[in-house]
């Protein structure tokens, strides 16, 4: 928290990397990578998210409790996504008896 004051240099570096990654993700979108374009786009987005959370949102200076709560978001999101998609994507894979 406020006892950790990061330098303007650190913030500027993070900001520049974020801008570069935005350029990269836009450029890569025009290259045909097949199914991997989604993977690459999400990977770059995840890196940008981590940079914003760790540096701009001071996550790296947060208490363990706060870090755990924030990381918990991924667990809840995973449960919602995985269980819903497990249903939707497997419908019709097995025949329904009596139909």
């Amino acid at each position: 928290m406020s006892e950790h004051v990061d330098s303007v240099k650190t913030y500027t570096a993070v900001w520049l990397i974020l801008l570069i990654l935005t350029g990269v993700t836009t450029g890569v979108a025009y290259i045909d990578l097949g199914a991997f374009s989604v993977v690459i786009a999400l990977l770059i987005a995840a890196v940008k998210m981590l940079l914003v959370a760790l540096f701009f949102m001071h996550m790296r200076h947060s208490t363990k409790l706060t870090q755990l709560a924030a990381a918990g978001a991924f667990l809840w999101l995973f449960i919602m996504m995985a269980f819903t998609l497990a249903d939707v994507w497997t419908r019709g894979l097995v025949g329904t008896p009596g139909r």
Partner: peptide, 14 residues
Amino acid sequence: IFLFPLLYLIDRHM
């Protein structure tokens, strides 16, 4: 950061 690639980018290569 997630909306931008998902809405604008991921099908552009086709």
